[in-house]
Design a protein around this nucleic acid. Structure first.
Lengths: 202, 202
DNA sequence: TGGCTCTTACTGAACGTTCGGTAAGTATTA
DNA sequence: TAATACTTACCGAACGTTCAGTAAGAGCCA
């Protein structure tokens, strides 16, 4: 797959603060996230958080990195030798047919964070990088499929962006609507798209 | 197309407050939206807002309706008699090749609001309804295309959900990343998907 | 026409609460 | 004893919300 970004190492105290922030976000959403709430989840005083972070903004930037690391860790896996299977593997990681509670929660948190990218430059850069990496991962699989002769001679970048947009859209809808069946329909349709539009049939 | 929801009529004062809220949201984002900020945009006192709305929550619900009306007004248009053109027309409305500033702003505001649907039930229901209506609009066009013989005999709902997810995903990315070329690539790929996957070629 | 009442659409000040942030002090460990 | 990891107690500002008061006008009666 594509080169992983190096993960920062969190001290035990920092990791606990990140986990507390995660829980606070799940309960109150981004707009309702405060240092008091994080401290309550942490089981320590507000000042304890300021011992580790200079300002709320610093904590938020650190948390963004934390959440992104988590997300990318769930996506990254080894590559097989069948491009169709690889592609469906990536899609399954991003848009699982039956997501467990952990996956749902992480994606909910990320959607909350991502909406901040509309007005916040730092957030915007991070999510630009995330989508860049995801698109590159998908593109590499498609390129390999074309070289091997499994896939038709399509534009790998274009197809990768198409698949990424579809998966992102379904993920987004899953987190912000009660249209679960729509997400499932999209998954099925995406698989048939890969099979009929992309695969070279004998 | 699909049945339009009836639009509420706003008094002059209410409409001004909605416009002020819109501007405040653009400047400060949802997390930074306060009654003071709206009042400042409005050019009146905070109490003036409370004369028209009982609480911030009520104002927010009203604004959600206001923004959704605006959004759906830009999408709704008459139907032609060529399904392929109709489909591309809807896609162009949702994901314009070159969005003007107004479209960008409205979509940015909607992405900010939509992220609240993760934790807020009322918001979630609204966005579920929006996606329901958009999917139905697309599905109707596809169904007509199949009846007329322009499209192959696909599952109209499945294809509609696929197209909607892709468009939503690209819209979302446009509002939260600096990957403008990716949105363009998705548009192009979507057009070729409609042509090659959906159209019955002679 | 002038005076009276009542409504509409506000203003400005203040309420209690919560916000992000800080200064000073206190255990615990090396 | 010095650094580490905190707690307690607090600050000023901003938050959503309420309240008393008022200018402008409408509707009606004499």
């Amino acid at each position: 797959m594509v080169a992983d970004a190096p993960e920062r190492d969190w001290s035990a105290a920092e990791a606990e603060i990140m986990e507390a922030t995660y829980r606070a976000l799940l309960e109150h959403g981004y707009a309702g996230l405060s240092i008091s709430r994080i401290a309550a989840e942490l089981g320590k005083s507000k000042a304890a958080i300021y011992y580790h972070y200079d300002a709320k903004d610093d904590l938020l930037v650190a948390f963004l990195e934390f959440a992104v690391d988590r997300f990318e860790a769930t996506v990254a896996t080894e590559t097989g030798d069948e491009p169709t299977a690889d592609l469906e593997h990536v899609v399954e990681k991003l848009l699982p047919l039956q997501p467990d509670e952990e996956q749902r929660q992480l994606q909910a948190v990320l959607v909350g964070l991502r909406s901040q990218a509309v007005t916040n430059e730092v957030f915007r850069e991070q999510f630009t990088r995330i989508d860049d990496r995801l698109a590159a991962t998908i593109r590499d699989v498609v390129e390999r499929g074309i070289e091997e002769g499994t896939f038709r001679d399509v534009d790998p970048s274009r197809v990768a962006e198409h698949i990424l947009a579809t998966v992102n859209g379904a993920m987004y809808a899953r987190a912000t609507t009660d249209r679960e069946s729509a997400a499932a329909a999209t998954r099925v349709s995406l698989a048939s798209y890969i099979d009929s539009e992309l695969r070279r049939h004998p």
